[in-house]
């Protein structure tokens, strides 16, 4: 749904897929594998302002909790309730049904500071 080749990635493993001023965000396939079985995702509410570097969601596995950082600034305009009801979607389809929320970007220029897929892949290669 959000072709990873067209996504921009943050070092902290979130992706953003921008389209007309709104960016859908989620976590990378690499990140979902690292976290392994996700049991719960706590999402921000619609209307909340988010910015890079500030945790705005939490991803829980059985024995760990990871912060989610918004890759770009803006206001949350839509959240994916489906992953709250069925967090396994994030493991199954991190770039599809497992997306987190959508941001109306206030600083679209921030996208330029993110990595493209090829560059991101290099950071996760062991």
């Amino acid at each position: 749904m959000f072709d990873e080749a067209k996504c921009k990635f943050a070092k902290s493993h979130e992706w953003a897929f921008a389209e007309g001023g709104v960016a859908a965000v989620g976590i990378s396939d690499y990140a979902q594998k690292e976290i392994s079985d996700i049991v719960f995702v706590e999402l921000p509410k619609v209307g909340v302002k988010v910015e890079p570097g500030k945790a705005c969601a939490v991803i829980e596995s059985v024995k760990a909790a990871a912060d989610f950082f918004a890759p770009v600034s803006g206001e949350v305009v839509e959240v994916n309730d489906a992953i709250v009801d069925n967090p396994a979607l994030v493991n199954q389809s991190p770039h599809g049904e497992g997306w987190f929320f959508k941001i109306r970007m206030s600083k679209p220029g921030e996208l330029e500071g993110l990595m493209d897929f090829a560059a991101y892949q290099k950071t996760t290669a062991h």
Partner: peptide, 13 residues
């Protein structure tokens, strides 16, 4: 269960 809420995992959060 639901241990990811707890201090031994989330510490200050």
């Amino acid at each position: 269960t639901l241990q990811a809420r707890e201090q031994h995992i989330r510490r200050e959060r």
